[in-house]
């Protein structure tokens, strides 16, 4: 079990020197991806609790469900939905990066590059999502579908 003959060569992980060097822990892309993964994960978890409960109102009555859905159609909530989808997209893309870094030695070595690829994919996906969603949010409501 403890007999491993492999050795792993990683690039120097020490952060760039700044005015704060030696006084503050300042990680690089690896630390920030970890921080973002935790923050987005916790945020999505609490939304998930609420979202299962609001969907549960579909079993109560059409009026009850439509009343709670109306709160999601408020423009302020609409902007919040962009942030929420951004958190989901970031967590998803970074999660795939974590799997690659765990499973594939090339990805372990290039995790820093992969972080920026994740950021690029998030930007592209949000450029696809945000205009369509905001047009829907700010379009005047017609009486249902």
């Amino acid at each position: 079990m403890s007999e491993t003959s492999s050795s792993l060569t990683l690039p120097d992980p020490s952060p760039r020197r700044t005015t704060f060097s030696g006084t503050l822990y300042r990680g690089n892309e690896g630390m920030w991806s970890w921080v973002l993964h935790r923050i987005t994960g916790v945020a999505i978890y609490f939304f998930l609790l609420v979202h299962v409960l609001d969907t549960a109102l579909i079993r109560v009555s059409p009026e009850a469900y439509n009343a709670v859905m109306a709160t999601y159609k408020n423009p302020i909530m609409g902007l919040g939905e962009v942030v929420l989808v951004g958190a989901v997209v970031l967590h998803a893309m970074n999660g795939l990066r974590i799997i690659l870094v765990d499973a594939w030695p090339w990805a372990t070595k290039h995790q820093r590059l992969l972080f920026w690829i994740v950021m690029g994919l998030v930007a592209v996906l949000m450029l696809y999502f945000t205009p369509t969603h905001l047009i829907n949010v700010f379009s005047p409501m017609d009486g249902g579908h």
């Binding site: 469900y65 439509n66 859905m69 369509t132 969603h133 949010v137 409501m141 249902g144």
Partner: peptide, 13 residues
């Protein structure tokens, strides 16, 4: 939210 016309506004009972 994207492929259904109206997106979030179309989500109802």
């Amino acid at each position: 939210l994207l492929w259904t016309p109206g997106g979030i506004h179309a989500v109802d009972f």
